[in-house]
Computed example of a mutant assay.
Amino acid sequence: MTDQSVAIRIQALAPAFAEAAQAWASRLALPLDGEAEFALQVGDHGLQMVDLGPQAPGPVRVDFVEGAVAHRRQFGGGSGQMIAKAVGIQPGVRPTVLDATAGLGRDAFVLASLGCEMKLIERQPIIAALLEDGLGRALRDAEVAPIAARMTLHCGNAIELMAAWQGEAPQVIYLDPMFPHRDKSALVKKEMRLFRPLVGDDLDAPALLAAALALASHRVVVKRPRKAPIIEGAKPSHALEGKSSRYDVYAKKALKG
């Protein structure tokens, strides 16, 4: 949930966006002015989060149409990517997936671009707002809209939402709990600087894993830094390891076409 000790304000980047800024301020219960460490800005590029401190990195927004996400969609290796193998994508098999720690939605977008129907849960309201805004812009782009249409976002506590799940269970549940990252890439550092004060580390990861294992019909996949310990609780059946990340796979039942 939002750390109330972190001061955030909503800011319209031009008069034309004042009404939209007011709507977000009301919805997120955030002020439009006053002293703040961070600003959630509304402008030409949609919604973006920016650190207002000295020597701060640039703004972070969710963009599924251009930039790194678009490049990965076009040149990222398709169903040969490790995340695709981890969730069980294979010829004739595109499992339904719940990403219960959606964040900025990049991994969910990769899986949606490969044909998976995705449900996303994000519990931090500001991150969920950025993701909602990015999905809305993606739905207005002719090329990306069919992918975004496979992504349904819910804002709330994933443990509670999974426990009260209605309807058919997702075949695969994907988890990427916040962890003390050691990644040195500028992008990760920029996003961690912005979001770690809001979300901290996911200390309830064991409960999240237990809820996922209780709900998923076929498997649970947990993304971890390569050298990080497994989440406390059940042991994974196997793992896929890359240069910086690892996917712990908890298999319950074989995925078949």
Rank of each mutant, 00 (worst) to 15 (best):
A7S: 14
L131W: 08
A210D: 14
A207N: 07
D183F: 07
P95E: 07
E37A: 14
Q124C: 01
A36P: 01
S245G: 02
Q22S: 15
T101G: 15
G200Q: 12
R150S: 00
R224C: 02
H71G: 15
Q55V: 00
K256E: 11
E143D: 13
K243N: 06
R123F: 01
D63S: 09
E232G: 03
A18W: 00
G136M: 13
R123D: 00
P15V: 09
A21P: 06
D202M: 13
P225F: 10
F17L: 09
V87C: 07
L135H: 02
I173W: 08
V222L: 07
E122I: 04
I83C: 12
V222F: 02
A239N: 07
I83Q: 13
A210N: 07
S113C: 03
A84Q: 10
D99Q: 09
L111Y: 10
A128L: 05
P225R: 12
H238I: 02
D107I: 06
G92H: 05
I231W: 03
P146K: 11
L135E: 03
E35D: 12
H45K: 15
V221D: 04
Y174E: 05
A21Y: 05
F64M: 11
I231P: 04
I121M: 08
L208R: 06
A39I: 04
K252Y: 11
L240D: 00
M178L: 14
L215P: 12
D141L: 13
A68V: 15
P146Y: 09
E168G: 14
D107L: 09
V62R: 10
K85S: 08
L215Q: 14
Y250C: 03
R73W: 08
G92C: 11
C155T: 14
P59E: 10
H181N: 08
A254H: 07
E143Y: 03
V65D: 04
G34T: 11
L98R: 10
